[in-house]
Structure formats: C-alpha cells, structure tokens
C-alpha cells in the first residue's frame, strides 16, 4: 500500500514540471503565438530560482524569481515576434539557445551549492494515517499548485469571457481586430503567462524536485512540453494526462535501471519521451478534433491594417 502511494507521489512529482510548462505554452498557443523558447525559459527560471533561494535562504522567493525570469525572457520574445513581427519559429529557437547559454553562465557559481528546498507538505495525522491520506496530503506544495493551475486554465479558457476572447484571437486575429479586441495586448499577456509558467516549471525542478542546480538540468523537458501541447490537441486535460504519463514512464525507467536490466541506460532514458509522444499521437489522430482545437492562426504574424 505504501508503495502505491509512493508511486503516485513520484509520478506526480516527475510530471509536474511538464504540467506547468505545457499549460503555459498551451495558453500562449491558444492566442495564436508559437513560442519555441520553453526550454530556455525553463532553464533561466531554474537558475534564477536556485540563485535567489541560495542567496536568501527562502525557496519561495526563488520560485517567484523563477517566474519573473521566465516572464522576462518571454517578454523579449514578445517584443521581437509580436511588435517587430520577426519569424516566431526562428525567434523561439533562438530564445531557447539563448536561455540555455545564459543559464549555464549564471549558474556556474551555483553548481555545487546546497540549498534547503521546498519540502512536501506533511499534515500530522492526515498524511500518514491512511492510504488515502498519503495519496492526498503528502505532496509538494508546488504539485498542488500545478493542479490548481490546470483547473484555472481549464476554467479560464472554456468558462470565461476573457478565455473566449483569447481563443477567438488565436482563431482569427483579423476577425477579433475587426470586432474591436486588442489583439496585440492579448497576445502579449498570453506570451508572458507562458513565460512565467515555464519559469515556474524550471523553479520547481531547481528548488523542489531535486533541489540543486546542474547545467541543462531540464534535460529536454521544454521540448517535450511543446510536443505535449500539440499532441494533446490543445486540450488542458490531455496535457495533464500526458505529463503524468511522462512522469510515470520516467519513474519506470529509473526502476528498470535500478534493477540492472540488461538494456542500455540510454535507451531507457529515451523511453519517457518515446512513450509520451507515441501515446499522444495515437490518441490525437482524429483530424476533426485537431481542426476544432488547433488555433488556426498559430505562428502567423498579425499586423493590424491601418
């Protein structure tokens, strides 16, 4: 019984960075903007969070710093891609490379530093009383926050007027502009939200999941988050499922490595990525679903005619 609870906890913990990063990117893409800089924004968020946590001894300040750093980097993207109409794909890729390099540079002096991370919540009595208690009440606060974020995004996109406007902008910025919505401002906000979420995903890795700083510690999770959004056909609950699938397989391959299976470890490390993409690709092969949920203007620059 304990093992099951632990399995769930570890799966959620491993999937959480993807939940943050992919939900943020989902909101960005729903507004019609394709920001491929998630990996870079995650790393910058991670190093900023770690540095601030190490300096102030307060991991929560670190989380805020990570979000701010992610948002700041996404603001650079927004200015280039939205205001100056640069190519979104190229700009996003450059942003990732820039973030990878910047985080490695800033993080040099933090490589061997040890900090006090954010511990899992432990409500005495509840958390260790029963299986249910362990399942529900023993995770990291940031895991709960990510679930709250999921609920928030789902509610915002499909239950609020602002969410409807955001989807409309992603569907047809020309029409949204014609009706009188500020397309550029809405897209800026969506990009900043995506940046803050990516930064938060990095911060979670650096101050809660591990907690430590290693160069390139996101290990491609930013890219998998991007793939997740597409294969989840821009649906928040599928993003959530995909993220936990990734977390579960990550866990399984750790177990397999620990058991000393006669499979090259590199192959095992591939598994989470392969499995996530394969499963989501199979789920999302319905063309009609894609057409209904994909933002039609994704990646296309919008310039309001004078």
């Amino acid at each position: 019984m304990d093992q099951l609870a632990q399995l769930v906890a570890l799966t959620l913990a491993a999937g959480t960075p993807l939940v943050y990063a992919a939900l943020g990117e989902l909101v960005t893409e729903k507004s019609g903007v394709l920001n491929l800089g998630v990996e870079g924004m995650m790393l910058v968020g991670a190093v900023a969070a770690f540095a601030v946590a190490a300096t102030t001894q307060n991991p929560w300040l670190g989380v805020l710093a990570g979000m701010a750093a992610g948002a700041a980097l996404s603001a650079v993207f927004a200015v280039l891609a939205l205001t100056l109409l640069s190519n979104q794909v190229a700009t996003g890729l450059a942003l990732s490379l820039f973030g990878i390099g910047l985080s490695a540079f800033v993080g040099l002096e933090y490589v061997a530093v040890v900090i006090e991370g954010i511990p899992p919540v432990a409500i005495s009595g509840l958390s260790d009383l029963t299986l249910v208690g362990t399942l529900l009440f023993a995770h990291n606060p940031l895991v709960y926050l990510s679930l709250a974020l999921f609920a928030l995004v789902q509610w915002f996109l499909y239950r609020t007027r602002a969410g409807l406007v955001l989807r409309a902008v992603g569907e047809s910025p020309q029409s949204a502009h014609a009706i009188g919505y500020p397309v550029l401002a809405i897209r800026y906000l969506a990009v900043l939200f995506g940046g803050a979420c990516a930064g938060l995903a990095g911060a979670y890795l650096a101050v809660a999941y591990t907690p430590l700083w290693v160069e390139g510690m996101t290990a491609g999770r930013g890219w998998i988050a991007l793939a997740l959004v597409v294969f989840a056909t821009w649906k928040p609950w599928r993003v959530l499922a995909g993220a936990y699938l990734f977390g579960g397989v990550t866990l399984a391959q750790f177990q397999a490595q620990a058991l000393g299976l006669d499979v090259p470890s590199q192959f095992l490390s591939m598994l989470p990525y392969l499995a996530t993409i394969a499963v989501l690709a199979i789920i999302s092969r319905d063309a009609a679903t894609i057409r209904l949920n994909a933002p039609a203007s994704l990646g296309k620059p919008f310039h309001a005619a004078a």
């Binding site: 409309a168 047809s172 009706i179 057409r291 949920n293 039609a296």
Partner: peptide
Amino acid sequence: HFSLFETLTVAENIALA
C-alpha cells in the same frame, strides 16, 4: 467576410461581438 470564428459556436461568436 472574415468576421466569424470557425471553431467557435454561434452563441460564442455572437457573445464576442
């Protein structure tokens, strides 16, 4: 031309305006 959102419903389209 160009003023309806194809992936949204009639009611959502009208609500937006």
